[in-house]
Each structure stands twice: as structure tokens, then as C-alpha cells.
Design a protein around this nucleic acid. Structure first.
Length: 213
DNA sequence: AACACGCACAACCGCCTAGTG
DNA sequence: ACACTAGGCGGTTGTGCGTGT
């Protein structure tokens, strides 16, 4: 019900945190725990709203936060979980110890989303895109077909077609792996028990992205 | 050197939900 | 059952930095 009034109070500081503010927050929480976030700023001597303090602590100052680049395994985990859970960042974060929902959300928006789009997948459905732009490579391929037939031997064309067929098979396999099942934990656990390992999926992603270059 | 641009990420905003009286 | 609040969540914006021109 209704919006929390804490941030409507005027005179509270906004914007980037200073090292001094960080220290005050860390010291207070280490000594007393965070308790009520609403009451914390006053007790800790901070001119911030409780919400801002909570966010700063959970997303940046918490001692168990893992910083730095996401590993390949983490990246694959996010892809897998996002295909199942969607934009449930906090739910995804529970499967990645030391990572915050905010960090995962940012990583998704700046890296993974683009990666999927580049590979021709809809980042929301994890299915191949069906719009005109995703079809463009196929249309170009068709347009080039005539020229191909005129300038290359049958042997060359056979090798090329064989390579492309293999890539297409891998693409379809990946499509199958990334298919979002019905939103139930049953299908989730089925997926988790599938014989396909994270590494296999990751290798497929890599092989496909290198193919597109 | 100066400017424009894009990227990454920290932080904020507004809505939703669970808990409480 | 209802009103109210704190905390949590996801979307969006702001800011600093690196890179290209």
C-alpha cells in the first residue's frame, strides 16, 4: 500500500556516497546491526534516508559481496536462470553467492542482453527473433545463393553446405536448451536434472558467437 | 588538447507485498 | 476487514570514465 514516505523527506542527501558516509554506515552496522533501516540514519549520524542506506549496504558495503568480473560459469547460470525465471533478479541472485540483484541486473542489461540479441535471440523469451532484422541474414544468404552457384565448384558448395548444416543443427539444439518452460518449479527441477551440462551450453554459445563473427 | 560519444555501474524512484495493530 | 508502514524489488536515470575523432 502506498509509497514509503521516507524518501519524500526534504533535506536528506542524495547522490554518490562519500568514504566518510560509508565508514559511518559500516561502523554502525558492525556494532549494532542494521535493525530498522528507517531509524538507522539518525542513529548512525547520516543525513540519508533509510532506503538509501539499505541499498548502499546490500549492494556495495556488505562484507560478503564478490566484486569483479563475472565468471563464465556465473554468466551461464544467469542465462539459464533468466530463461526460467525472467527478470526476477533477486531470485537469480540467490543462486549466485556474493552477487547482488543490482549487479546481476546491470550485467544482464549491459552484456548478456546484447549478446543474445547479436546471436539473433529475443532476450526476453530466449527464442530466435522473428522480426525482419533477425531474418536479414537468411534473406542475404538467399540473395547470395545465385552468385555462389555461379562462382564455386560443386565440391566447394558441398563442404560449405555441410558446415552450415552443422551450425544450424547446433543453433536448433541451443534453441531447445533455452526454451522457457511453463512457469513451474517442476519444470525448473526437470531442467536442472537434464543431462545437458552448463559447460555444454556455454561451449555451444561460444561456438555460435564465433561463427557469427 | 578538446570534444563527443558510448559504456558500465551506482543510485534513485515508484510500486508491490508482508507484517502489524 | 481495513489502514498503515517498512522493506524489498525491478525499472530507470545519473555520473564517471575510457575511447575515438
Amino acid at each position: 500500500m502506498g509509497r514509503s514516505p521516507c524518501c519524500d523527506e526534504s533535506g536528506l542527501k542524495k547522490g554518490p556516497w562519500t568514504p566518510e558516509e560509508d565508514q559511518k554506515l559500516i561502523k554502525h552496522i558492525q556494532k549494532h546491526g542494521h535493525g530498522s533501516w528507517r531509524a538507522l540514519p539518525k542513529l548512525a549520524g547520516l543525513n540519508r534516508c533509510g532506503k538509501s542506506c539499505r541499498l548502499r549496504w546490500t549492494n556495495y558495503l556488505r562484507p560478503d559481496i564478490k566484486r569483479g568480473k563475472f565468471s563464465q560459469e556465473e554468466e551461464q547460470t544467469i542465462l539459464n536462470l533468466h530463461s526460467i525465471l525472467g527478470n526476477k533478479w533477486s531470485a537469480i541472485a540467490t543462486h549466485l553467492p556474493g552477487r547482488t540483484d543490482n549487479e546481476i541486473k546491470n550485467f544482464w542489461n549491459t552484456h548478456l542482453k546484447k549478446k543474445l540479441i547479436q546471436m539473433g535471440f529475443d532476450p526476453m523469451t530466449h527464442r530466435p527473433r522473428t522480426d525482419i532484422f533477425s531474418s536479414l541474414p537468411h534473406l542475404i544468404a538467399l540473395a547470395n545463393l545465385k552468385e555462389l552457384m555461379e562462382h564455386h565448384s560443386w565440391e566447394e558448395q558441398a563442404v560449405r553446405l555441410q558446415t552450415e548444416a552443422a551450425q544450424m543443427a547446433r543453433l536448433q539444439y541451443l534453441q531447445y536448451l533455452l526454451q522457457p518452460p511453463a512457469n513451474s518449479m517442476e519444470t525448473f527441477s526437470n531442467n536442472m536434472n537434464s543431462t545437458v551440462t552448463d559447460m555444454e551450453t556455454y561451449n555451444l554459445l561460444n561456438s555460435l558467437s564465433s561463427f557469427e563473427r
